[in-house]
Design a protein around this nucleic acid. Sequence first.
DNA 1: GTCTATATTTTGATAGAC
DNA 2: GTCTATCAAAATATAGAC
Lengths: 203, 203
Amino acid sequence: MSTDRAAIHPRKMPVQRRSMAAVDAIYEASARILEESGLAALNTNLAAERAGVSVGSLYQYFPSKEAILAGLLHRKRQELLADMRRVAADHRALSLETVVERLLNAALRHYLERPVLSRTLEYAEAYLPLDQETAQLKAEIGGEIAKVLADRDIANATLAARDIVGMARGMMDASSQAGDSDASALITRIKAAVLGYLDRMRG
Amino acid sequence: MSTDRAAIHPRKMPVQRRSMAAVDAIYEASARILEESGLAALNTNLAAERAGVSVGSLYQYFPSKEAILAGLLHRKRQELLADMRRVAADHRALSLETVVERLLNAALRHYLERPVLSRTLEYAEAYLPLDQETAQLKAEIGGEIAKVLADRDIANATLAARDIVGMARGMMDASSQAGDSDASALITRIKAAVLGYLDRMRG
DNA sequence: GTCTATATTTTGATAGAC
DNA sequence: GTCTATCAAAATATAGAC
């Protein structure tokens, strides 16, 4: 019997205590595999084994390995969005420079926690049949930034937000791949790029 | 018999006319597979079929699918480096702004030719057992930019070059993923980020 | 709910004929 | 040099016992 390879969404929400532990273990095991060996190395058997559950159990929660990836990405996005909202909440009281710095701090904190995992999930998204809900989260993260920019009368806030997210991400990737570990110096440099960009686009 | 999965380098240089055509066809077919379906979809059987050659022939030139990826990346890098050198050659006669613009034009031209392929190969590099020679090419590309910056008395030219490559790449990725196709507007915005960054890092 | 065992499919790689 | 045929290994997914 041919199985549905396109299934992406977690099979069901685990409500029992035990089930949640299994799902968490699968996520964490998968994350480690991705970090250690990349996308190509992730498979359901290995993920189950490393999570300390059987493949059968894994398939009870995830219809495919893509579903695991989608779930991981979704989680990460939710966490970042929550943090972004927190930072953007009272932004009107602050200078542009301070807001930018706080937003970058939030983004960096998430990214630097697990840079390789972040990179891998970001790439996976590009070829993964896109999960509507997760795409929405991405848009909302951009939206939070655009809102801050629009309030400062920056033209084309949506485009600018996309540019800023892109440049920050690119610099974080380059830095982490080069093995650079000085986070505060990195923030300073990203801030230079972001504020320099905004200056020049405004002037 | 267990085969050597770690082999990366193309098996041999094709010297005959016919062989070169086969190798080219394999590269092009692989590139299309990567663009259409991502890294996970690339396999030797499919690449051979789409290239119009048999798997046996493919294995005559490539010891593994990783070798195909490594070869594709190596080619792309060589092309970009050649272009960068051309641009950087007479840079002393030009303003910083003009040099930056020319370098970005070169990078963009290469990237926008096949953005999805570029992204995929870049990601592949991260988990691919790194090909010494290709890593060297990457360093040389950064080196060309660093040289230009150092000549303008920009401190920490190597670090700045890495940042600039990263931010440009991140913005190109974001733009192409969003489906934006206005290349000249994109150049203008990347220039704003790069020059703004340099200004602030200098001042 | 979870596990073991297993079928099915896909992929990697080679042997041997032409 | 190239192809066909095929093997071996790995990965997906499920059935059925507990």
